[in-house]
Design a protein around this nucleic acid. Structure first.
Lengths: 209, 209, 209, 209
DNA sequence: GATGAATGAGTCTTCATTCAT
DNA sequence: GATGAATGAAGACTCATTCAT
């Protein structure tokens, strides 16, 4: 994420040493654990620190306050998702539209559902967090990646690629979230995913013929 | 909503009398106000009561605890949305698939975005609320309504209507949420909505030809 | 004290009922007790509440934060001192200069030393409290009272009464503070007080002959 | 200051080497800076160390704990003030009473007001510091210096020089503090200072004729 | 010797909930 | 039935002090 975080939300210090990096990772992991096992209203700084095996004081050395921790956690998460999607887009430049859609849906779907519990937890953690900037940055990054990919399609040309793209992403991202928030049976999820792919492909074909 | 709310979340008493209903409504409205003006972490029982013009004690007469209030609030909200969608479905039985899709997207989109601030506020309030039952009930109700409508289409017949329907709803609901959570410019929102309608229509035509 | 306290330092609610007044008084008294027995760095809200026999929550109902408590405490204290001095001034209008000085020194000295421990405690509590307004208001009040008294002297007339008066008060107030902060033996304190009175009288005679 | 500091308040080691002295001075200066810029409740060891350009660890090498630092700081400050007053007294042995008073008031006044911000800051830092011993030692030192001077006056002889002296010092020290704590306009301050000098001179003349 | 990351007891403050009036 | 003062457990955050590197 290259989004410059609101000043007050940025980590107090960048972990430079090995040990620090380990500590920060432990804190992130602990946050997720607590979120999963206790829920967001029991996500307290003390509990996180305890679970991470560090003292509260140490935690505050890395994150000036709770919000900064959650912000950073979301940032890291979105970063990972973004990277995966970007990689998929990169790898499918010049491919057929069908392959592109397949790749895009798959990449996003997997990124979101592989550790679906974590995803769910993070959605919760984001509430009441001023993370619009984060979301915005993520969206722009995705936009750039998918547009570049779509543009490279040998079998299609889009009149209004911006609109096609924002629609495509909205539909995919939205559907994925909706599906796994409803906790539908895995089989149904898989079915929907296939349908979604088909639907998107038709859309692209209709738009970029 | 016919979902039987988890026992501990149901209101202490059903507002039967006139006065009670007024009070409850005032409390609901106050909750939304506070949510909007102060954010979820400043949503306190005292503040809600104050804004509603009643004492905390009175509030506790109607809602045994804070969660029950939020639960009821969400319930009421989903109820309203569900009703609007149901009505649209009802009114389009026997219509063309195109009309149906248009009606469905419109009904849901409007219900969600007309008071988008409120919607957003409610999403927040729902976090950490054990409202799966609520969501589930809402989903089922929607399912029933839309399936009934789709079945009545003179111009289509669906092999696996359950799958088609769940996909359709997932896509619509998900996209709407995604769009308005990103706070896109109104023009873009309108564009996407049109695209979404088209996309869904193609999907149905492809599935139900 | 008619000084309008900085908004953020004013008590949350004016005690209207009997019970409330009692509670507030208990809190004030407890604060002084803790200040005396534990020192300012052990003056915690919890400790004060405990000593006052109320819960922290209750304390916060009356004082929005610790500073407000200390501010109010000082305000109340200065009010009492001011009243006593004012009364003395009032009662000596038209008296001889000698009687005036005697009365002024006595009134202030007594007000400050009668519960000298408390005075000392309050001086401490005032540190790092934005109480300039308080001090200023007190000073003005004293100024007004003493000037009115001095003006009424039948045996003196002051060319620059403002300067004479501010000097007089600075000397008296300063000396008193200095004396009792040094914790001199009572006998010495009494001696100094007499000397101070004499000194001030000479000063006034020299200035107002 | 020859006052033997309470054992637990004395610096861990006397700065014998050049480097140490420099460091200690930097720490003192930093303390004052922080006190001025941040206020006493933000005067933390870390902040002081940082501003002084040393590590906390190093600071603890010189001062076993925070109190020791503040104690030493006050000690140093009083030492400087004491020295200046002593020098003035020394230089006016055998002078006229008028010259003596003038010199005394001037010396103390200047010492206190030249860096009045610092003085103020130090008063704050002394709160909740067991510095009675310090004050006492300072007082005795001043006593000795002024008594010696007064005794050498060719134009006066005091029956009870101890009382006269303690009164004199109490009045001067107290007034100075009072004046500059009230932050009066400079012009008024200067006026009061002149009045104070006159008043003290009359007093001495009346007492030592 | 110097460093500064880590510690965790201790602070202030909030807020859901109760219950005497 | 309504009120709102009182409660106190629990949370976020600070900071003097230590000690491994």
């Amino acid at each position: 994420m290259t989004a410059t975080a609101p000043r007050h939300l940025s980590p107090r210090k960048r972990p430079r040493q090995q040990r620090a990096a380990v500590t920060v990772d432990a804190i992130f992991e602990a946050t997720i654990q607590v979120l999963l096992s206790e829920g967001i209203h029991r996500l307290t700084t003390t509990r996180v620190a305890e679970r991470a095996g560090v003292s509260v004081g140490t935690m505050y050395q890395y994150f000036p306050h709770k919000q900064a921790l959650l912000y950073a956690l979301n940032e890291r998460y979105l970063d990972i998702v973004a990277e995966r999607v970007e990689r998929a887009c990169q790898q499918h430049r010049g491919a057929t539209t069908a392959a592109m859609v397949e790749a895009l849906v798959t990449a996003y779907w997997k990124a979101k559902t592989e550790r679906s519990e974590v995803t769910r937890a993070l959605y919760r953690s984001a509430v009441e967090l001023d993370n619009e900037a984060l979301i915005e940055a993520f969206a722009e990054r995705m936009d750039a990646a998918t547009i570049a990919m779509l543009r490279s399609a040998p079998d299609a040309h889009y009149a209004d690629i911006a609109l096609v793209n924002v629609t495509l992403l909205s539909v995919i991202f939205g559907t994925v979230r909706n599906v796994f928030e409803r906790n539908l049976p895995l089989q149904v999820q898989a079915d929907i995913r296939r349908q979604l792919t088909t639907m998107c492909l038709s859309y692209l074909e209709a738009s970029g013929g």
